[in-house]
Design a protein around this nucleic acid. Structure first.
Lengths: 203, 203
DNA sequence: AGGCTTGTTGATCAAGCGATCAACAGTAGG
DNA sequence: CCTACTGTTGATCGCTTGATCAACAAGCCT
C-alpha cells in the first residue's frame, strides 16, 4: 500500500463538503491571511484535490468574500453580545473598546486590512466589506444613542461619530498589526478621545 | 524598419537608469499600488526589457521597499514643511490634521495600507514601514511638545499620544480608501478628540 | 583601431494562481 | 443487477510573478 500516494478522499455529501471547505478557508485566513485562501491551500488542508474546491465553490473570489464575511461577522456578533451584557448603558461603549483594543484580535484585524486592499480587485468582497462596516457603525451608533437617551452623551449625528470612532479603532488595530507601539494606555487615551467626541463634560 | 518591434533602448549610465527606474516605480505605485510594481510593469513604462530592471535593482522586494520610502518620505517632508510654516504653535497640529484628512491623499493612504499587508512577506519593507511610522510619530510628538511648552496642551507622554493620534489618522484614511463615509465633519470631530487627548480644557 | 567594460536583451526556468475538461469511482434508484 | 447521478481526480491551459544566464552591442580608453 503506497502510503505516500494521496489516498482518494472519502466521498461526502455536497453540503458537508462545502462546510468543510468553508471551515478550512476560515482557518487558513485566520492563520495566514485572506490572500492565502487559494484552492490549492484549501484542498491541501482537508486532503482533497484543488479542483474539487473549485467544483464546490463557483469562484475563488466568492470563497474569499464568504470567508471574510464569516470571520468578521462572527466577531461582530461576539462583540454585540458582549456589549449587550453590560448593564450600565454608559459602560457598554468603554467596555467594548477595551475588549476590541486588548491586542488579542490581530487575526481579525489582519483580515480587515487585507480586505481593504483586496476589495479593489474583488467586487464581491468589496461589497461585503462595506456591509460589515455599516453593521459595525450601526452597532456603535446604537450604543451612542443609548448613552444619549440616558443623558450621558450629547452628540448631533451619532452615525457620523460612530464612523469616525470605527476609523480610530481600525487604525490603532492596523498599527498593532505591524508590531508597532503596544502602549498600555491606549484604551484610556481612546476613551478620553471618545468622551470628547460624544460631548461628555470633562471632569 | 519594423516600428512594431521594440527598438533597443538608448544606452544610459547606471545612475541615470536607476533614477528612471525609481521614478517609474513611484508613479506606478501611486497609480496602481505597491503590488503593481513588478519588473515587467516598470520595464514597460520606461521602454526597457524587464530583466534590465532587475539588473539594476538587486531584488524586487528592495525596489518596492525603496518605492514605499520614497513616496511616504516625500509626504512626510511635505507635511513637516507645512507644519513649520504655521506661526501659531497651537495651530500647527490642527492645520496639519486638516491637510492630511482633506481626502486628497488617497494615493499615499493606499500605499500605507498596502505596506502593512506586504510588510509581512517583505522584511525590508516592514523595516522601512516601522521607520516611517516612527518618523511620523516623532513629528506629531514634537508638535505636541511645542503646544505643551506654550501652555496649551498638557500631556504626560507625548510620544504615546502621538502614536495613538497617528493610528486615528491612518484608520480614518483607510476607511475613506474604501469609498466609505466621507463626512465633512470628520476634521472637526478629530480635532475635538485630539483636544481631549491633549488635555485641553473644553470650552 | 582594437579591446574591455558595462548597459541591454532574449531565452528560459520554477513557482504560483484560477479555471476548464474529460475521465474515474462510489452510491443510490429503478 | 446495472444504470444514472454526483462526488472526485488528473491532465492541461493560460496567465502571472521573480530570477538566472548566455549572448549581444554601445561606448570609453588605451
Amino acid at each position: 500500500m503506497p502510503s505516500s500516494a494521496a489516498a482518494r478522499a472519502t466521498r461526502k455529501s455536497a453540503t458537508e463538503r462545502r462546510a468543510e471547505i468553508a471551515a478550512a478557508a476560515e482557518s487558513i485566513a485566520r492563520e495566514s491571511g485572506l490572500s492565502s485562501v487559494t484552492m490549492r491551500a484549501v484542498g491541501a488542508r482537508i486532503g482533497i484535490a484543488p479542483t474539487l474546491v473549485l467544483h464546490h465553490v463557483e469562484s475563488m473570489d466568492l470563497l474569499v468574500a464568504d470567508t471574510f464575511e464569516r470571520i468578521v461577522g462572527a466577531e461582530l456578533s461576539e462583540v454585540t453580545e458582549f456589549a449587550r451584557q453590560v448593564a450600565d448603558p454608559t459602560g457598554a461603549l468603554p467596555a467594548l473598546l477595551g475588549s476590541v483594543l486588548d491586542g488579542s484580535r490581530t487575526e481579525v484585524t489582519r483580515v480587515w486590512v487585507e480586505s481593504w486592499v483586496l476589495g479593489r480587485e474583488n467586487a464581491e468582497l468589496a461589497s461585503r466589506v462595506r456591509a460589515q462596516m455599516d453593521a459595525w457603525r450601526a452597532l456603535l451608533a446604537s450604543l451612542i444613542e443609548v448613552g444619549e437617551a440616558a443623558g450621558v452623551y450629547r452628540v448631533a449625528d451619532p452615525l457620523a461619530v460612530a464612523g469616525q470612532l470605527l476609523g480610530m479603532i481600525d487604525g490603532v488595530g492596523a498599527h498593532s498589526l505591524v508590531g508597532w507601539q503596544d502602549d498600555e494606555n491606549r484604551v484610556d487615551l481612546m476613551l478620553r478621545a471618545v468622551d470628547a467626541m460624544l460631548g461628555v463634560a470633562s471632569h
